[in-house]
Design a binder for these strands. Structure first.
Lengths: 341, 341
DNA sequence: TTGTACGCGTTATCAA
DNA sequence: TTGATAACGCGTACAA
């Protein structure tokens, strides 16, 4: 920050006080039209821009929102950030982005920095390893507006915007069941991660509704990456062929891609021998040899709803704690056994 | 910002002055060990965090960097942001993200907001429609550190980190020429966008080096999207078949995907009838029916280098204006006619 | 080693 | 309609 033009410079140059400059530029009523005009002109001529930092200090408001993201390159989050950015811009807020890299210690550190920065509110998607909620509780206790998105912590007094994971998992599983498949496997996500748990729940619920038997040996807990899906599927193939599933519900698309590779490696066809569905509508899903049936999650919408709720809280318009669910969309392709696509 | 704990609260609680608190917490030498210990304890107990805004005002330094991105969801930029974030975190800087959405008016607006926010420096990738450089010149004139990344403006006194577009285009074109193809088309990007221009240059240079004839009718200026590539290729197919190219250099991968579709629709094979290469190594490139030979750009590296340079300037360590080039990597797959993959 | 006065650039308050 | 003063929370410079 080099020597910059201040309100005082503008004031001096016009022979008036800084207050009048402030009033003129902030569209306050009690300023004459002539004065206002002169102030605006001179400000432009001198290249004056109000120092937002000084403003923030006195107003105790920074018009700034802190966003904690666990993972930037994963295709889901850029969409969310894009939605957040859009609403921020429309409402005059700045977005401070912080990347936790799935590391809870780093996340904690970032949150402290953001609060020091006096952000007006916080948007958090928790890192996978977070088990200690005290940081979040502190935020809430201090009265700093907080909204979780995608990866939520419920029951501690913060609003939350998320995908209807359980319901979507139920829906896509039902879709498979309606194809007539009865032996259905689930490549589950880590059960300490919420989406892992919810999708497994939805899977189970669909089976129960249709009174299908649950085969514990067909539920493999694995990771969220391609190689995890590959390994999980291989594990299933270690069972006697009679016990192999007719269909597979993968916790997400990358896991499904891995599983598909494993199925091909086994010399089996998709969906003729084994049908499979994913979750998230990865950009690659439709390019698979057998295009993947999946659930599309509207990331942009999640981002928009989350900031919108946060801004409502910041501005005291609607401070009720809400649990906002953005619905997933079932994208039917060929891998489930449908003819279209 | 609700009522928060200040240094004065800590000072009062200990019966000392705020200065001693400040000194103790900022690791200044002139404070006794016992006092420092007490201050640290009490700060923790009271939940005191220095107000970064107040600090910034007096120090005239915000430890904050503004990043202007033209497009968030495009796969290239999340990688860059990720690299920026990493270096920022390591060096104690915050990242304020602003999305211009390829809109020059919005970009201008964002830049003003960021400077008002007193960012210590700016990282800018220009929107495609920008033709007026006066905003950038103002920044430089004010002495606010500025580094362009990916989409640069040269010759106005700012450093720049970019991909070696021209050289990479030359290299991949040479690769096609080495296959023995002589009639080679180029689906060019918009010529008012730098990458469009540079890649065309590289293409031309390769032809010239190998003394191949340049066929103007085989150079089609189009957009950067899939449909642009599709249309450009269709246009080429309107020529008499004798004039059709044996190989195609697309300005980027999406354009290549579109062109591939057009080639398939024509009933031709890739690479047997027409070989094609792209640019950017989109995640879908290897999943194409004929996996796409392309140039991989190291986005993460671009981000890292750009912030690093910016921080050097901010901290006065190396203020020379540099033109930093991150090399692309030739990824050979099947679409160019190579056997592997 | 510790404390006091002042200033960073802005706005709220109250007086003119 | 306008201006003087104080305050936001902190750090620098100097004094004690």
């Amino acid at each position: 920050m080099s020597r910059r033009v201040t309100a005082r410079d503008v004031a001096k140059s016009l022979g008036i006080s800084t207050m009048t400059v402030s009033r003129a530029l902030n569209a306050k009523p009690n300023v004459s039209q002539i004065t206002r005009q002169k102030v605006i002109e001179t400000s432009k001529k001198l290249g004056y821009f109000p120092n937002q930092i000084a403003k923030s200090l006195v107003l105790k408001k920074t018009d700034t929102i802190g966003v904690v993201v666990p993972e930037i390159t994963h295709s889901f989050f850029p969409g969310i950030i894009s939605g957040i950015e859009e609403i921020c811009y429309q409402n005059g807020y700045q977005l401070i982005l912080a990347h936790s890299a799935e590391d809870s210690a780093r996340e904690k550190d970032l949150i402290y920095t953001l609060t020091s920065q006096q952000v007006d509110g916080l948007l958090i998607s928790t890192a996978q390893t977070v088990e200690d909620y005290s940081v979040y509780k502190q935020i809430i206790q201090r009265g700093l507006p907080l909204v979780f998105y995608d990866r939520c912590v419920r029951g501690i007094g913060a609003s939350c915007v998320s995908i209807d994971d359980e319901e979507s998992a139920r829906r896509i599983t039902l879709h498979l069941i309606n194809h007539g498949y009865t032996r259905i496997a689930h490549l589950a996500g880590p059960q300490r991660v919420l989406i892992g748990k919810l999708r497994l729940e939805g899977f189970k619920r669909a089976l129960k509704e249709k009174k299908l038997e649950l085969h514990p040996e067909l539920i493999i807990e694995a990771g969220l990456q391609e190689q995890d899906g590959y390994r999980a599927m291989q594990k299933i193939f270690e069972l006697p062929p009679a016990q192999w599933p007719r269909a597979v519900v993968a916790v997400n698309d990358p896991a499904a891609f891995g599983a598909m590779k494993s199925i091909f490696d086994k010399g089996l066809r998709i969906p003729e021998d084994i049908a499979i569905v994913g979750f998230s509508d990865d950009i690659r899903a439709q390019l698979m040899p057998s295009p993947l049936t999946t659930i599309r999650q509207n990331a942009y919408e999640v981002g928009k709803r989350a900031v919108h709720k946060l801004i409502q809280i910041i501005e005291g318009k609607n401070t009720t704690i809400e649990d906002i669910i953005v619905k997933g969309e079932l994208i039917i392709r060929r891998s489930c056994g449908c003819q279209n696509n």
